[in-house]
Design a protein around this nucleic acid. Structure first.
Lengths: 212, 212
DNA sequence: TAGATTGTTAATCGATTAACAATC
DNA sequence: TAGATTGTTAATCGATTAACAATC
């Protein structure tokens, strides 16, 4: 009966967090049922897309009522990693790295940021939120001892590949790459690229387009 | 002869900043020519995709040599907003907002962060890098006087729509949404969503998948 | 020249949308 | 019951990949 969690298409996977946010909001608002149409309007999609998307999850809707909000939340959480907590390390204690390390929301949502490392003696030892900046030389040990599964890379582009290599060698299996560099990793390691500057450049294109 | 800059498909637009990064690296390294195959290897694409992508730009390659690095850089910069500088406001002076406001790289790349605003009297007046946190009440005036075209939203999800409405009313035409909320904006306003938590959740899915 | 590499067309692949019988 | 909404199939749309004549 359990649907396969494997092989959800990437565009769908990227929408799942958005469904989850919306569904959690609905639950907090005391809403018990949501139709594909309701969800579509809230997220700017079509109801058809919503039903297709949710068909990948372990949930069935009910005619005339839609999807049960609580059940849908469980199904979304289940698909997005099963509700387990990941240990996360932040590499790079610059402005961005520190901001990420200090963000309490991640912990609430299942991402326990348990280490912040840097190369610079000037920042090693500094307190950031509940963490202390540690020496990147101890990275392998930290990853092993604390069971770090995911790392966020907030280092300069020139240092990104080397940091990624170290992390992978230490056993990290997922990288969130915030650096402006294309990372090469062995099969079995997942990389998700993020980058605010890239996002700004996309915006710039869109604005340039509509002004032209 | 000038190719239309209009209507480059979104997946291509999202790759353009990556080409630009790579091409700038090549130029700095003194490389003068790059073939589609070279670029493909550096970015993890196929040479066919690269040629299709670059066919949207105002540049032609040359058989047997590839693309001239300097010309390609100009074409990419041109497509991504024409090399003009955008005035950018950051809304929300929490950890993330301050980190973004203090980032000098944006300015170098044509995004002049010229304002940082917040609602809280506790942070208004505080210095962040070269900026001082200002009262969100002055937002409309700031946008108008400084010619702000793009805003980065680094506010709690519950405040995001209201902030977006204010920004749009004040004349901002592009929003980079870092909040966990779906923004509704009028036609003619561009929104790009970013969200580190969403990226972590995507990673979580991928890791869950490969472990299962 | 011979061969490498382009720009572009055609084929394939995949995602979104539309449509509708099933059903609550 | 009648009608709203589902899950799923089929149609459409769009992106990626393959192939190749043109060309430097």
């Amino acid at each position: 009966m359990a649907r396969q969690l494997k092989g959800i298409p990437q565009p769908v996977v990227r929408r799942l967090p958005k469904y989850l946010t919306q569904v959690q909001d609905l639950r907090k608002a005391g809403v018990e049922w949501a139709s594909s149409q309701d969800l579509a309007e809230a997220l700017g999609l079509t109801s058809s897309t919503v039903r297709q998307d949710l068909s990948h999850l372990d949930i069935l809707g009910i005619s005339k009522r839609g999807y049960e909000v609580a059940a849908l939340e469980r199904a979304l959480v289940g698909a997005l990693g099963g509700g387990r907590t990941w240990k996360v390390a932040v590499v790079g204690a610059g402005n961005l790295g520190c901001a990420l390390a200090a963000n309490e929301e991640f912990r609430e949502k299942g991402f326990d940021v348990c280490a912040l490392v840097d190369t610079s003696p000037r920042v090693i030892g500094r307190k950031v939120g509940r963490l202390t900046v540690e020496d990147v030389a101890a990275l392998a040990e930290i990853v092993r001892e604390r069971g770090v599964g995911i790392a966020m890379l907030a280092v300069p582009a020139s240092a990104a590949q080397e940091a990624a290599d170290k992390l992978v060698a230490a056993g990290v299996r997922g990288l969130l790459n915030l650096a402006r560099a294309h990372l090469r990793v062995p099969a079995g390691v997942a990389v998700v690229d993020a980058g605010v500057l890239e996002n700004l450049q996309e915006l710039s294109y869109l604005l340039h387009l509509s002004r032209a």
